[in-house]
Amino acid sequence: MLYCLKCKALFIGNKSTKCVMEYKIYDSKDFPAYLPKLNQLYDDLFSGGKGFRAKMIRMMAENLRLDPKAELLLAQTIEFIHNASLLHDDLVDRSHLRRGKTTAWMKYTPEYAVLAGDYLLARVMVNLSSYGNIRLVQYTAEVISDLLEGEWLQDSLVGDMNVQLSQLDRVHNLKTASLFKWCLRAPFLAQERYEPGLHTVLEEMGTLLGQLFQRSDDLLDFNIRNYEGKAILGDLKSGYLNSFASYSTSHANKTDLRKCETLEDFSRVIGGQATFDQKLKEFDEMNLFLIQLYSHHMKTLETYLKPEEKALLKKLEPLTEILYWRKRPGS
């Protein structure tokens, strides 16, 4: 794994691997020149972001010896879907900032943000269908529909201070994990490898990666392993109980919870700093079990890989470290 000084992001691969920013995922020529505002919006949107999902595609493609055209198509597809979901997500959440910049719906209009997101999803279908693999098209359409279902459901949880972790997992499985699952399964589908057992294990692994990523992201809100210095308590202040908050506040006073302004307030509401530390320890232990499950599934995955593809396992193994523990390569 390497760290790109140019885009300040982690990426998976060896020294010969290019950073995702060198992928030509977004090219303004791909979009109609007679729609300057759309192009301008995409310029803003695609200039930034870690491109973690595209990197996952690259990692899979390299080890599965995927045709470079298919690799680029898959990388574009996942980034288009992901960015479309961000456009819609920011509007639904009424977020003002994305990647340190003003969000599209604020800078342009909500209508433009919706249309730009829709257009990206439409491009995904146009590009993928021209590749001619109907199972890949169908699977991608299912993922997009899962994303939207997740968005709908998540919106209904805003303001719900008694939401259960299992209910949040259900939303995260639709919203977050579906893209990780796609990154793992799509390269195999592109190679017309449809073994049900293989896709079952990849589905499980993708679900776990998505869950770990989301839970780690939720911990950032409480300044845990917040190496990138993201704003804290953003979810709670906007009335959304994330996974760690849901786990740690089952016995807390919900009225007091709504009034939390600082981390100290939050610790006090759940019973003090010692309780906070204990809850964090339990939360990490619970997720350690998910990491163990992920490693366990790697053994099953190995049985489906050709000898020349086994190196993929070594690349997949540290993903949990990166996604949950937010460990930098080599640390």
């Binding site: 459901l153 209904s156 949880l157 719900d160 201070m161 008694n162 939401v163 259960q164 209910q167 259900r170 939303v171």
Partner: peptide
């Protein structure tokens, strides 16, 4: 009730 998910349904 407005959504099938969340604590309101359970309650």
């Amino acid at each position: 009730l407005h959504s099938p998910l969340g604590s309101k349904v359970d309650m």
